[in-house]
């Protein structure tokens, strides 16, 4: 008897092979996954929003009306202009300007870019660390497994902010350079990567424990493949499904973490603002009436996080046949 995997990660549509000739895309449109995607209007909306945000982030320099970081385009005289539908607004600035006279809309585009880039790279790094350690722990077993999983337990007791402070401190001690601005980006990615790997490691370890006892792994050992080859070629493709789900959900978490750190001043400097930095800047003007400086980055962050999260939830449900 073979144990049914908890999460069915088989995205390949089940066909009888007659439509082998049709394109991958056509088959994807036909599959259960696609059907469940289209069945929920909210998921479609979340997918659309996420996609739009990704496009904006990717092409920010092309579509933003201004480059808010080019001193030649920023004038203090424009500072704190309200959005165009309010009295005293400037038609050039759709969503108003911030305290330095930067166009809010452009700052948002660029902030989204920074936030998603840090979130994405952080998620990538944590997945890389977590998947590697999970594969090794699950496949090697014994002491190596115990060691890695204890490190994971310890890791969980450190909140991301502590890790960020730690990494920040270590990087500065090593580089001895004064400017936080050059290293802030790397420090953020590293902190997020080091904060979120545990979930990947645990999940992948669990799946690896199941996979390593399957006969296809034995068959690979029989022809003399070494453990790294078996892990890379055989086990990894079979444990990646849940990783995709965790990565999607963690992207939202990573963006929030980055925003939190930036809000608290441990993250990105105002010269290179992320959504979190923008919120921190805007926070100071909340009670003096310039609500838009904080509201727009805040709303953007919330919408982004909710959309990505919904997408992740849907992906998890769609890949888990028991919930269908």
């Amino acid at each position: 008897m073979t144990a049914e995997p908890l999460i069915d990660t088989d995205i390949t549509p089940r066909t009888d092979g007659t439509d082998e000739r049709r394109g991958r895309f056509a088959r994807l449109l036909d599959s259960d996954i696609m059907a469940s995607f289209l069945a929920s209007k909210l998921t479609v909306l979340a997918g659309f929003v996420t996609f739009a945000f990704l496009i904006i982030a990717l092409f920010a320099p092309l579509i933003a009306p201004f480059n808010p970081f080019d001193p030649a385009q920023v004038f203090l005289i424009d500072a704190r202009d309200p959005p165009i539908w309010m009295a005293g607004s400037d038609p050039r600035f759709l969503l108003g300007t911030d305290d330095q006279g930067r166009d809010m809309l452009s700052a948002l585009f660029y902030g989204l870019r920074v936030s998603l880039l840090i979130g994405g790279l952080g998620v990538l790094l944590s997945a890389l660390i977590g998947v590697t350690l999970g594969l090794i722990a699950g496949y090697a077993g014994g002491r190596i497994d115990a060691l890695i999983m204890r490190i994971a337990d310890i890791q969980l007791t450190f909140p991301a902010i502590l890790i960020a402070l730690l990494v920040d401190g270590v990087v500065h001690a090593l580089l001895k350079s004064g400017g936080r601005e050059d290293t802030a980006f790397g420090v953020m990615v590293l902190s997020i990567g080091l904060s979120f790997w545990v979930q990947y490691a645990r999940t992948v370890r669990g799946s690896t424990l199941v996979e390593r006892n399957k006969d296809y792994v034995h068959a690979a050992r029989l022809i003399g493949l070494r453990s790294p080859q078996i892990l890379w070629r055989h086990v990894l493709p079979n444990v990646l499904g849940p990783v995709l789900v965790i990565a999607t959900i963690n992207l939202a978490l990573a963006v929030i973490t980055e925003a939190t750190l930036s809000f608290l001043g441990v993250g990105l400097p105002p010269t290179q603002p992320s959504l979190g930095t923008l919120i921190r800047i805007g926070n100071a003007y909340l009670f003096s009436g310039e609500w838009w400086i904080v509201a727009f980055p805040g709303i953007t962050l919330a919408v982004l996080v909710i959309a990505v999260n919904m997408l992740g939830d849907w992906l998890r449900d769609a890949l888990n046949p028991r919930l269908r």
Partner: peptide
């Protein structure tokens, strides 16, 4: 070697 369960002995 040929294994018992051909659903487990071929990498899906």
């Amino acid at each position: 070697m040929i294994f018992q369960d051909p659903f487990a002995s071929l990498n899906p």
